[in-house]
Amino acid sequence: LEAKFDDSTIFKKIIDSFKDSVSQINFMCSESGIEAQAIDDSRVLLVSLSIPPSCFETYRCDRPTTVGVYLSSLSKLLKSASSSATLTLYVEDQPDELLLLFEESKASKSMEYKMKLVDITADMLEVDSDMKSDVSVEMSGVEFTKIVRDLTQLSDSFTVSVGKDGIVFSVDGETASGKVLLQPKEDLANPENNLSISMTKTIDLSFASKYLLDIIKASTLSNMISLKFSEETPALFEFKMEKGGGIGFYLAPKYDE
């Protein structure tokens, strides 16, 4: 594998977006890009990552390779990332290490890190990316992040309801409750403020607040978030990157009592 990002902060943002959700991951590298899937220790949140060749300045992968890493270690190396540096990832044919090369052409500076790979025996779950959903919402990632931060302070449980009035985020804590209603809107001057809802059925689902706080860490990857809900199935919270690919979080709901 030889894969070069023209801006090393892109890979840092990708890793930082899920390093607090899962501790280790297998990157599956092939000619169609880098893909990865990991499940958190409590088996409530599934992270699915896709970095297609379009995200790289140059991308080459001669044969499918699995690259297993501890995310805390990788994240430490990525503290060197800067937007003025490129980052090239190298993995040999019989991989036992990942080489990261940062290059700043202006500063005539390069940095090289090597990281030992780990053999991770992770089970892969079959996730249908075209999973049918009753409700699809596209909205501003900034707006979603603010709502999650504000409301999760009040309760461990966060409810999403979608009906004819729009989408309602609500919490009902021991000492306080809160509710935010958003209706579809189109802002032609600022399309990142658009909110669209397509719905075949109403939904009313609750999730544990702590996972939502992890999910919003990926909001640096995209201006928009796409939400997909169906009654009694995991919700999908997805951030799509400008150059293709992105990260999706499948979050199992709490049971309806």
Binding site: L125, E126, A252
Partner: peptide, 14 residues
């Protein structure tokens, strides 16, 4: 508080 479901209930092992 409502009990939490887990992801394995919904997706098959591959």
């Amino acid at each position: 508080d409502a009990p939490q479901s887990d992801i394995d209930q919904f997706f098959k092992d591959n």
